[in-house]
Design a protein around this nucleic acid. Structure first.
Length: 277
DNA sequence: AATGGGGTCAACCGCCCTATT
DNA sequence: AAATAGGGCGGTTGACCCCAT
């Protein structure tokens, strides 16, 4: 027989997460690490589906997430990667540390698509839009490129396309990124992780509004919690072979507009502890 | 001030691949 | 090998916010 069902979905809560639920989930994962998601709601005392917990964690609560709009460079990288990978958002997100597939997908649909169309570029094919009276359908069914297509990209360089995006766009990725092609974008180093914790109420902060109307800065809670395992796959110095850095120190930082900085260090002892879990 | 429309994004749904028994 | 569940992923929805009228 197979595994046990994920959840029976009976009596489970749906909709926006409350601050209380977030705290429970965060403290559970910080204490126990990411394990079997099916067991998480039960063990954490949440009336949520394990899947919902996973989504909440990966898309919102993960401490290594960047918040706020994508930079010009990130946007360009997304366009570039989308030209190669199609709507494989998770693959695209894996090249942008601190960004989630959901976030990139949303940004694509709400910003980039329009931007490209405005510039006469078909967001699906990344080629110039036809100029005849046969405009491209808004959302025709899109086939993801086959692997062999990825190996043999279209003749027109995506750099040619993305270089048309606008005057604010940065130079082609291959030049900016120390000669890496987009499939070789290096993972961010632990010391480069910069978690912005703004006290403003803008949507680009780490604050979250809850259904009860409260707004909570999640990272304030993190600072009170012990060191923990970020788990594999979070991009903290993990390379493709699963090798982790011996320590993780990163900033919960800010910028020139007065946002405070503080640092959190996860040392080897802590890492060893969680190896055992 | 009211309201309608558009934009944004967190969260859910359902499919599919992989792992497990 | 087959059956089944877990987890990941892309698509979609709906609530909220902002802005123009």
């Amino acid at each position: 027989m197979g595994r046990q069902p994920c959840c029976d979905k009976v009596g489970l809560k749906k909709g926006p997460w409350t601050a209380e639920e977030d705290k429970k989930l965060i403290s559970f994962i910080l204490t126990n690490g990411q394990c079997c998601w099916r067991a998480v709601p039960k063990l954490a005392g949440l009336l949520r589906c394990g899947k919902s917990c996973r989504l909440r964690w990966t898309n919102y609560l993960r401490p290594d997430l960047k918040r706020g709009l994508l930079s010009n460079y990130e946007e360009k990288l997304v366009i570039d990667l989308h030209a190669q990978l199609g709507n494989r958002w998770s693959k695209i997100a894996s090249h942008l540390p601190g960004r989630t597939d959901n976030e990139i997908k949303n940004h694509w649909n709400t910003h980039i698509k329009k931007k490209l169309k405005k510039m006469g570029i078909d967001p699906l094919t990344h080629k110039p839009l036809p100029t005849n009276n046969n405009p491209i359908n808004d959302d025709p069914p899109q086939k993801p490129p086959k692997d062999q297509d990825l190996l043999h990209p279209p003749p027109r360089s995506i750099c040619e396309i993305t270089s048309e995006v606008g005057p604010n766009i940065e130079p082609p990725i291959d030049q900016v990124n120390n000669g890496f092609c987009t499939d070789e974008v290096p993972l961010i180093e632990p010391h480069e992780i910069n978690l912005v914790s703004s006290t403003s109420s803008s949507s680009s902060s780490s604050s979250s509004s809850y259904e009860d109307g409260n707004s909570v800065n999640i990272f304030e809670d993190f600072l009170d919690l012990p060191c923990f395992d970020w788990g594999y796959g979070l991009g903290f110095g993990d390379d493709d072979d699963g090798i982790r850095s011996s320590s993780l120190d990163f900033l919960i930082g800010g910028d020139s507009d007065g946002t405070q900085y503080s640092s959190m260090v996860v040392d080897q002892e802590c890492m060893n502890l969680f190896e055992l879990l």
